[in-house]
């Protein structure tokens, strides 16, 4: 009995959306999780109801999960290792005398 009614829906599941929320303090939108919705408007409403129940957000972005392009884990070395030795991008690389004051 369960099978009969649920099977058409099974092939027709609401798409998955990735949800990004900007919190109270002007920070960037941050990925908070996912949910199912039929279209972007529905996804925004669902995100409001699911992910801002505790007053967490002031702005919502929704992106179809299928539209997210991700870097491949096997590229992890070439993608991220080259940044590792560029220590001169960090302020602590430059040692300055205390006399120069706060900088």
């Amino acid at each position: 009995m369960a099978e009969d009614t649920s099977s058409p829906a099974a092939g027709n599941e609401w798409p998955l959306w990735e949800i990004f929320i900007r919190g109270q303090h002007g920070m960037s939108h941050r990925h908070v999780g996912s949910l199912h919705a039929t279209d972007a408007e529905h996804a925004i409403k669902n995100a409001r109801d699911v992910y801002t129940r505790r007053n967490e957000g002031v702005s919502i972005w929704v992106v179809p999960a299928s539209q997210v392009s991700a870097s491949s884990p096997s590229d992890k070395g070439p993608m991220f290792d080259p940044a590792r030795d560029k220590v001169y991008r960090h302020p602590t690389f430059y040692e300055l005398p205390d006399e120069a004051g706060k900088m």
Partner: peptide, 11 residues
């Protein structure tokens, strides 16, 4: 009918 709707209605 769906978790998302359940949560919304409770709100």
């Amino acid at each position: 009918p769906a978790l998302e709707e359940d949560i919304a209605l409770a709100n």
